[in-house]
Design a protein around this nucleic acid. Structure first.
Lengths: 278, 278
DNA sequence: AAGTGTGAACAGCTTCACAGCG
DNA sequence: CGCTGTGAAGCTGTTCACACTT
């Protein structure tokens, strides 16, 4: 069952193009003075680098796994190894959210989980709407329970008449035109676009209209949105092309050797300072 | 139809954890001397920043769209606007791959497409294997033709006996145990992991065994791989959590205003120096 | 006159290394 | 004594601004 087609609509009003990650460092254009390196006291979610936020999410998952295995505390060394980063980076990341470790000992798993969840805003549930109920949309709708709670999918949309009202993963599918009404009613805060490229911008417009300010876009299109809206893009083709680049680079650099697949590692020179603790 | 379960296997040998992007700048551990800022003449794919590679893929798509509409040439201003980046960045990105523009004029669409494809290694087709034929796997298998040619999916794997031999998107599904044989036979260069988390590492091991050196991982797990293997991760939960973080930050900063969705932009203070040229 | 290509300044992120605390 | 937390150094990537070419 392939993705459904959706007709594009309406000319688009002037908007800023949305870029993805690693650029905006949790913007916060000069509220007080500046140059205050220490954590601002009153507002919690201050200048946490975007890159650190992404990793915090990873730490959270690893920590959840540890909790399940009844691990009570971890050192930065252990946690960083499990998360695939180096320990200094991990400690710095954690320092952005506060000082919850015990020197000479490590971190309490439970405490860290709570704190990361707080910073990521996972205490308040975020209602998610998925638009475009093709294969990908189905996969997303069924994702249901995430690593913990946190992201209930509460609305599904498509244009295919055959899908209207049909429940997918327990949620009935509504028509795209109802996005504003339904999203408002269900207090959707995050919209996921899983439509064909041609429909993406129109869908995005409707989501924005509905007051959704955070969008995850799977369509291979650069969405134009107002600056108040945060867009993240997941682009399969781009990912593959990046990998392709690496294949090509490899081929250029090592035109020889081909056999001996899966070389055992262990004593192989570490590229940077990555400590592999297990 | 949810994703199939797969039993994990074998204890994992020591390997380095795989991190994602924005860190490795197209590694190339000291072949000659160093400190040579100018582009090395002989090997083409030199130090192109990973971030730039990702954007080149985006430019490529935009350019393809332009070619379809019979656009013959573009200025950096136009192209950058369409790609959602600023023009200086675009020019710098393009400069990494060579000087293919005409001063005072712009770039020839055709030429740029060819050059970017060359650098990304898209001239040589990359055979892709998808492991885990759940909803996501289906979606990926059917992705079939990408923006242009380039990534034929030539192998599918799962553990579900009901799927064995069943063609999905034209390709019959094989058993996970056959990964080494099938991948070798079909010269797979890129493996995509779309299995449940518990199976991901085992699948990854088999892919590596099969000689696959580039992996795109959709499972929410930090894969351990030899250093010779390039892993990119697409993590839905992480993406949502990053968005959640932004929702939370927003709520903290602007506890007021709620109505007036979709505010018109245009004269609104640009956060950094983003030029919104249209 | 227009727009590319790029050195140089800048900003953000990562890594180091060690002071400080339990 | 061990491990956290963090200033400071280093590096990568972004932005600026302008010389240079057509």
């Amino acid at each position: 069952m392939a993705q459904r087609g959706q007709s594009d609509a309406a000319g688009r009003p002037p908007r800023a193009p949305a870029e993805n990650a690693a650029e905006i460092t949790t913007p916060m254009p000069a509220i007080g003075g500046n140059g205050m390196p220490a954590p601002g006291l009153r507002d919690r979610a201050r200048a946490i680098p975007e890159a650190a936020v992404a990793r915090l999410a990873v730490y959270l998952r690893v920590l959840s796994g540890m909790r399940e295995q009844a691990v009570a505390s971890v050192s930065s060394e252990e946690l960083s190894a499990a998360a695939g980063v180096n320990s200094a980076k991990l400690r710095k990341d954690l320092s952005y959210i506060g000082s919850y470790g015990t020197r000479g000992v490590g971190y309490e798993v439970e405490v860290l989980i709570d704190q990361i969840e707080r910073v990521l805003g996972l205490t308040r549930e975020q209602s998610v709407a998925v638009v475009g109920i093709g294969n990908l949309g189905h996969a997303l709708a069924n994702y249901g329970g995430f690593p913990g709670r946190g992201f209930p999918v509460t609305a599904l949309f498509d244009v295919d008449p055959d899908l209207m009202g049909v429940p997918v993963g327990g949620i009935p599918v509504d028509h795209i035109d109802d996005i504003p009404a339904v999203c408002a009613a269900r207090e959707v805060t995050i919209g996921v676009i899983a439509t064909p490229p041609a429909a993406a911008q129109a869908v995005c417009d409707r989501l924005v209209q509905a007051g959704v300010e955070c969008i995850l876009n799977f369509a291979p299109v650069v969405l134009q949105v107002p600056e108040t809206v945060e867009v993240r893009k997941v682009d399969l083709a781009v990912e593959l092309q990046i990998l392709s680049f690496h294949v090509a680079r490899r081929a250029d650099h090592a035109p020889a050797d081909d056999a001996t697949p899966a070389p055992r590692v262990d004593g192989v020179a570490a590229p940077r300072g990555v400590v592999v603790r297990r």
